[in-house]
Every structure is written in structure tokens, then in C-alpha cells.
Design a protein around this nucleic acid. Structure first.
Lengths: 245, 245
DNA sequence: CGTCAACTTTAATTTAAATCAAGGATCATC
DNA sequence: GATGATCCTTGATTTAAATTAAAGTTGACG
């Protein structure tokens, strides 16, 4: 039942964000059988290299995808927010090239591979939604590359926070201005390629410029336009706006 | 005719690298009608934000995908080698979030969107091949993020060269040890997030360590194991090795 | 085959970020 | 509400890479 796996309709919201999902598609989503599992903060939902079988959806909690260097260096390669599909490549690939780690206590719904893929076969719009989610993920990765490759620490952090604000707003999880980000500054640093000490300094600089407010892990954007400019952020490619179908 | 659009069978090689492509699929590929076009070095094949309609395949020449910062900074986000699909997301997305630029004089084959998608509908293995190519592209982006995010300039350059050697070998374009890379050191720097001056120094350091030889834009790997180690490179995720189907 | 433009190398200097280190918060737990 | 662990802040110092600059190559083209 969807009421079990998706009490807030977040997954439906995710799927329908890019593609036209009809009502009966939604109902079909709701008939999926899912078992849920809760993970503590810091625990691994998937491990790199291991194979997986079921589709995993985030009911609640924030997670991230993370790769490891041989020398122990950690790079976070994307954030996963409630409503996201944890392993959209499940259809085509047997093992992951990254770890999935909980930033906080999280609840994951698992749907059997065969069951979900039958659903996809019957509902082309759900398949298209998944395909587009995959394409959007690639865009985000390229955006991160641009962010890490050529910007100052302050700009990187601002971009990161902007993206989080925009994504949670799109998903209906925040108003786009106030949000809490359940990540340590070390984890933010691992996301944008700087040290935690410098994350702290970058945030302070953004606060001192009057762009945001910050206490503990809560953020409030004071001047959205200026803050976006500080992060060279545009939400142009967050969504796949022009659909060919 | 395939003999026109793919004289060396590179595109078939690309498609069949990940997925089981049957003989009759290959023949169907060969019956595609394509018009070819030649681009000079430095010219744009696609521009960010513009929509596109046809599928583009690389017959010859190397190209790269490139994003631009507001302040003019350029980040190369992936290399495109002969046999690659230039715009695999064409099925799901109407406009690109990156530019496609020729690193050298290149020949591109265009296949009409409708024609190629009819082919996909009839040949599930070709569709699967495209899907897997997309998944592999995401893996490569994450690998680049790890490379840029947390490694020294020398390691980044070594990783970049290793990846190029491995990819061209897989495609049958080099023996994996000797290759010419048609990119300026500025472009290499734009790929790994360092300045061209530092690219020069990094290459010199790799040469002085006896790992590679280098003249003009030709490279020769002297000690493959040591060179891979220097770049923290593993080809584990270049291919999607375990197929679920 | 000489000229020019683009690219590469090398050295000297500057700078942004890393590192090191110590003092404060915050939070979970008893 | 004390205790300890984790996280955050801030300053002092070091370092890797950027910047600047100039000389040396290469290669395209007339």
C-alpha cells in the first residue's frame, strides 16, 4: 500500500516532477508491496561493489552516495533526500560503484525487483519518470564537477547550500529559505572538496556578508538572489523542463 | 549503411561492449540511414541549452563535454571518443546542460530521432546497450568527482591519462600503452581542475619518475602498474561487468 | 622556408586552502 | 545536571597550487 511505503506521497511527487504521471499510475504505485527498514545515522544502506536486488526508496531521512579513495579520502558524490530512488540504475547494473550512507536516522522502503519492473512494463509513464530521474542525476553530477573543479571554497559551499534548498523546496520538504541540513561540516567538506575547517570559515563568511543565518545545522537564506549569486547557482538544470514526449 | 556511418565498426563495438548484441541487431544498425558532417578542431557540435533532435555518433575524432561558469571558468566534464554516442539522453531530454566541443577535426554521423527510436523499439538489446551506456556515463562522472575532489595535481593528471588509455584500448583505438591525446595542456587542466602550468609540471614529474614518456601530445606508459598506482586508477567501473539480464 | 600564433616549459612570487592546535559548543547518556 | 564524545570555531603556520612572466617549441600557412 502506498499509505505504508509513502505516507507523504513524496515518491509520487518525485516521479511526477519530471514526467506526466496519470492518476491510475499513482494508484498502481500505491498497490506496490514494500517492506520498510530503519537505519541509524551513519549506517550503510548499500556498499560499493556488492550486488543488490530490490529497489529502495527513501521514506524519511537524508542520505548520501559516497566514494572512497585508496588513501582513505572520502568524496560524497550526491545527496539523497526523502522521495528519492536510492538505486535507479538497478534496472541495468548489478552492483554499485558507491556506498549509500545515512546522514541521519532514515526509513527505506524496499520493493522487489521483479514486482517493480512489472509495474514499469505496464506503466510507460513510470518508466519514463525513472529514465528522466537518471538523466537528471547525470546533470547534477556534472554540476557538481563544475562546482568542485573551478570555484573558491566559499562559492562551493554557497552552491551546495543553494542546491539543497532548491531540491528540498521542489520536493515540498522546505520553503526553500529555511531548512535544516543534517550533515556535519566534515561531510559538507567531503561533498565540495574542502576541509571541515574551511567549511566553517566559508559559512561564517556567508553569514557575515548577510546572505544567510546559521545556528547548529539550521540555515536561513536572508537574501536569496545574492546568495544564489554567491554560489553561482541556477536551478535551470535541476529539473528536466522540456519534455520530448 | 553501416559501411558509411561506421566504417570501423566502432559504434557497434561500443554498443556491444556492455550488453549482448546479436548479429541481427548489428545488421539492423547497419541499415540505419545517417548523414555525416565534419567539424573543425575547436568547433561546437552542440551548445548548452539548445534543443537537438537527432542522435549523433562519433565516426572519428575526439571531443569533450564542457560546462561554463558565469565568470568564464570552463570545466570539461567528459571526453567523447570515436564510437561514442554524443547525446544518449536524447530519448528523455530536450536540451543539453553542456557544450560539445571538438578537440580535433571530427566526423559525426546523425541518425534521425524517430528512425533510431524505432530501431530501439524493435531491438531490446540495443535499447539495453544505450541504457547501460548511460549508467556507465554516470559512473564515470562520479569517478571524476572523486578524482577532482580529493587528489593532488599529479595524481589527477595520472588518473586522467590512465582513463584515456583504458578507454581507447577497450574501443580498440590504442594498445593501452601508447596513445596520442589531442588535447592542449590547458584542456587537460580544465578536465581535472588545475592550471595549465601545473599540468606541465605534473606531466614532467610523471616522466621524471619513469612512469611515462611524453613528446608533443603522444604518451607512452612505461610501467603500467606503477602508473595506475600513481593515478589511483582502477578500471573496475569503466565497464558494467555484471549484467543482470 | 620564414613568419606568426598557439602551445609548452621553467622560474619567481603570491595566495588560497590545508594543516596543526587549542578552546568552546552541543548532544546523548547515565 | 554532570560526563564524555563529537562537532564547531578560531588563530597561527605551512604548503600546494595559482599567478605572473619570459623564454623556448611546435606547427600551420602563405
Amino acid at each position: 500500500m502506498i499509505s505504508e511505503i509513502d505516507p507523504c506521497g513524496l515518491i509520487a511527487k518525485n516521479l511526477s516532477a519530471h514526467s506526466q504521471i496519470q492518476l491510475f499510475d499513482n494508484e498502481a504505485l500505491g498497490r506496490l508491496k514494500a517492506r520498510t527498514r530503519t537505519f541509524e545515522s551513519g549506517s550503510y544502506v548499500f556498499r560499493e561493489g556488492l550486488s543488490f536486488a530490490d529497489y529502495a526508496f527513501v521514506i524519511s531521512g537524508h542520505l548520501f552516495r559516497q566514494k572512497q579513495n585508496l588513501d582513505g579520502y572520502r568524496q560524497i558524490v550526491s545527496l539523497i533526500i526523502p522521495g528519492d530512488v536510492v538505486n535507479p540504475e538497478n534496472r541495468f547494473v548489478n552492483n554499485l560503484d558507491y556506498n549509500v550512507v545515512c546522514a541521519e536516522k532514515s526509513c527505506i522502503a524496499y520493493v522487489q525487483k521483479s514486482e517493480f519492473e512489472s509495474l514499469i512494463d505496464v506503466h510507460p509513464s513510470i518508466r519514463l519518470a525513472l529514465d528522466i530521474i537518471t538523466a537528471a542525476e547525470s546533470r547534477q553530477l556534472r554540476e557538481w564537477l563544475l562546482n568542485i573543479g573551478g570555484r573558491s571554497a566559499r562559492t562551493r559551499v554557497a552552491h551546495f547550500l543553494n542546491e539543497f534548498a532548491a531540491r528540498t523546496k521542489l520536493r515540498g520538504l522546505s520553503d526553500g529559505l529555511r531548512f535544516s541540513l543534517p550533515m556535519s561540516q566534515e561531510q559538507i567538506g567531503d561533498s565540495v572538496g574542502i576541509t571541515p575547517v574551511h567549511v566553517s570559515r566559508s559559512i561564517r563568511s556567508l553569514v557575515e556578508s548577510g546572505l544567510i543565518k546559521h545556528t547548529n545545522r539550521r540555515y536561513e537564506i536572508v537574501d536569496l538572489n545574492a546568495f544564489r549569486q554567491a554560489g553561482q547557482f541556477t536551478e535551470r538544470f535541476l529539473l528536466v523542463d522540456d519534455l520530448p514526449h
